[in-house]
Amino acid sequence: MTDDTTPTADDRTDEQVRTDGGTDEAARTDGGPPATVPPDDETPTWSERKERSQGLAQLTYQYFERSRREDEDLRTESTYVERDVLGFPTWPHETIRNLAITSFFLGIILLVASILPSHFGDPANPGSTPAIILPDWYLYWSFGLLKLDPINPDLAVLGGNIVMSNELLGLIAHGAIFGVITLVPFLNKGNARRPVEEPGWAALGVAGVILAITLAALAIQNFFPVQLELLFSLVFMLPVAGGVVTYAVLKTMREGYMYDLNRRYYMLRPPK
């Protein structure tokens, strides 16, 4: 048995009574030999550990055992084809390729940095608000979200007053966008990968990209010769239009495209 290795005082035959009347064992302060080490170098299996433990630890081992068995079953029934390495060698192929990509990219950054130096303005003046306040371009969309005041709901009960401050509306909009993006993997499941397989989700993505661009345009509205009303409508209409077009195009493509794909793919791996 591997479980019961805890030494107890009576088991010891070689115990010497010491001169002070006590035993070596009683004088020990290190708690004795560890209780869980099996006598030989055999590692206990998951089932043995499961039997020896209780509570959460036992549940954990129970799960480990199942998952180990599942792996083994899958491996034995698998028809997966193994092959010898056929990829590119790390040296020189992969290394040179990565070096090429890296130096090309760094080169472009350096080139752009040298021909388009950055803007530098006047020192901060808390006393005078500039006519145009702008962050870097990549935050324009976020800045646009702060200019949603035309759609801030007002209530008759409040005498036409807005329900919340425009800043709070902007914050909520940010929260909603980040929330939706975070939830994407939990809303769209299944193993479809290509946009043609899920035109709806592709349309949503395209609408999102266009929305980011139109919101950016809203942020720099001062630069647009269009009326604010019109710009504001476009901000929300263009993404919808883009989404609809994407959906239509992908649906149409799907007809011809899926036929070929189905033949190659689903015949080899029939859906469960």
Partner: peptide
């Protein structure tokens, strides 16, 4: 963007403070 403490830095940060203060 805030670090150079130029006009745009200052006013971008100002918008940041106003947003933070608007959080319930």
């Amino acid at each position: 963007y805030v670090l150079p403490w130029k006009q745009l830095s200052f006013w971008a940060a100002q918008i940041g403070v106003e947003l933070a203060l608007a959080t319930p």
